[in-house]
């Protein structure tokens, strides 16, 4: 299972940062052609990201590119460069409806044919950044088999909601909840928004713990120093690991015996507990029987 605990944003027009963004240990790198690039430099950033995808070895780390919306003059050419370059996935900004996803899907499909990539090889991540998008989250999440995740973009969302971001994130609570539910219902991942206070470790950890508790699979980050913090939030404790290993062993044991009932220490283990144990081991990167 691919983990997406941390997605590191890398400005698309910064050659020195594009070279080896994976060395900071994110699960995904996300080259940004959208907000991090000024309109005058959109074409130049596209060339840089294309070459980075082509020429650099990111050691298996997932390579995502945030493109400009198809409603902008840049989005369609972004798709060409990114598909030609060989990106693993495209992140759509400001997704308001399933139609937004379908439009990108169509462009990606055509680009895959143009550049001889297998059909369906480019994944999609839809970022939802408006009230309208949140209310369509369920339809968006199930709109394309290419979708691997949906994400919430908080800055635009709170603006749309006529509010601002606060320390406890109460203004995002409903949206986060709906987004995670939509993702789970569609069987894809949910990615939390960025936290802009680069020096505020406590604030970042608070927000990351909240997101994890709500069910998010990971979070976008804007600074490499936030990656280790996310890892600490998502890494199971030693006690959780020991417990999970025993649960999985018991489940394997029961299966070997052909027994439908899993028990551990004299107690019956329900299926959800086995499922959670699997997730714990996956987060720790452990192989499972």
């Amino acid at each position: 299972m691919r983990l997406r605990r941390s997605m590191l944003f890398v400005p698309g027009n910064a050659p020195a940062m594009l070279r080896d963004a994976h060395i900071y240990g994110p699960d995904s790198v996300m080259f940004d052609l959208e907000d991090a690039v000024s309109p005058r430099e959109k074409d130049a950033a596209r060339h840089l990201v294309f070459r980075a995808l082509k020429d650099y070895d990111y050691a298996g780390v997932e390579r995502i590119v945030r493109i400009n919306g198809l409603d902008s003059p840049y989005g369609l050419e972004d798709v060409q460069a990114v598909v030609a370059g060989g990106a693993d996935a495209i992140r759509l900004p400001k997704t308001d409806s399933p139609e937004d996803v379908l439009a990108v899907e169509k462009a990606v499909e055509a680009a895959e044919r143009r550049f001889g990539r297998p059909s369906g090889s480019v994944g999609l991540i839809a970022a939802i950044e408006s009230a309208r998008g949140i209310l369509s989250a369920r339809e968006i999440a199930s709109s394309s088999p290419r979708l691997v995740a949906i994400a919430i973009g908080a800055e635009d969302f709170v603006t749309d909601m006529h509010t601002t971001r606060s320390a406890d994130g109460v203004e995002l609570l409903a949206a986060r909840g709906m987004l995670v539910m939509a993702a789970r219902a569609a069987g894809i991942m949910a990615i939390d928004t960025v936290f802009t206070g680069v020096d505020d470790e406590e604030g970042f950890l608070r927000e990351a713990r909240l997101a994890k508790q709500l069910g998010f699979d990971g979070k976008s980050v804007i600074h490499p120093s936030q990656i280790a913090l996310l890892l600490s939030v998502y890494s199971p404790s030693e006690a959780e690991l020991v417990k999970a290993r025993r649960v999985i062993a018991a489940a394997a044991d029961a299966e070997a015996k052909g027994s439908g009932v899993v028990s551990l220490d004299g107690k019956m283990i329900d299926k959800p507990i086995v499922e959670r144990a699997r997730r714990v081991l996956a987060l720790a990167g452990e192989d499972q029987p």
Partner: peptide
């Protein structure tokens, strides 16, 4: 990679070409 990207971007601008033939830049 950066030399190539900056050069192809400059050429695109100087030639007034928006649709880049990405295939040939492989």
């Amino acid at each position: 990679a950066t030399i190539r990207a900056r050069l192809s971007a400059a050429v695109g601008r100087a030639a007034g070409v928006v649709d880049i033939p990405w295939e040939v830049l492989a």
